[in-house]
């Protein structure tokens, strides 16, 4: 068979301390994200900066996900094929966000759409219906 003689890859035994380290990192990230969220909510002084919480929370989620996928799920130690399938779903899922194009563009076009106008299109605001 094509790959019959490779036996390193998947039967790689990862020492426990590696796992423990990752686990601790995950817990720290977890505490961090909750703390940031509470801070953003309670601290009025931050004011409009609270939208940063968006990026922080999602950034932390992605980091955590990556840690779990790479170490816990062993993708880091696996073959290219496994890596391919491990990320295929996520890549393809992001394709779905093409749908947003529709919702975004529908606002500023000749077809009467919904009424929100993205800032980018304000200069072309003369295309508004009812004119």
């Amino acid at each position: 068979m094509a790959n019959s003689n490779h036996s390193e890859g998947h039967s790689h035994v990862v020492p426990i301390p590696v796992y423990t380290k990752v686990f601790i990192q995950l817990l720290v990230l977890m505490v961090a994200t909750v703390a940031v969220a509470k801070l953003a909510e309670s601290n009025k002084a931050l004011g409009d900066m609270s939208y940063l919480n968006n990026f922080i929370a999602m950034g932390i989620a992605f980091t955590k996900a990556l840690l779990v996928i790479m170490i816990f799920m062993g993708v880091k130690f696996s073959t290219k094929l496994t890596k391919f399938y491990a990320f295929l779903g996520f890549v393809w899922f992001s394709l779905m966000f093409l749908m947003f194009m529709d919702y975004y563009f529908r606002k500023d076009e000749m077809v009467t759409g919904w009424s929100e106008v993205p800032a980018s299109s304000l200069s072309r605001s003369r295309v508004v219906p009812g004119s």
């Binding site: 890859g9 998947h10 496994t82």
Partner: peptide, 24 residues
């Protein structure tokens, strides 16, 4: 299957492709 390596790797790929559907 021919041997244990092939079998294990098949399981792994199968599981991951199943997880792809879960992601979607």
């Amino acid at each position: 299957f021919e041997n244990i390596d092939q079998q294990n790797e098949s399981y792994l790929v199968g599981m991951w492709s199943f997880l792809v559907t879960e992601v979607m």
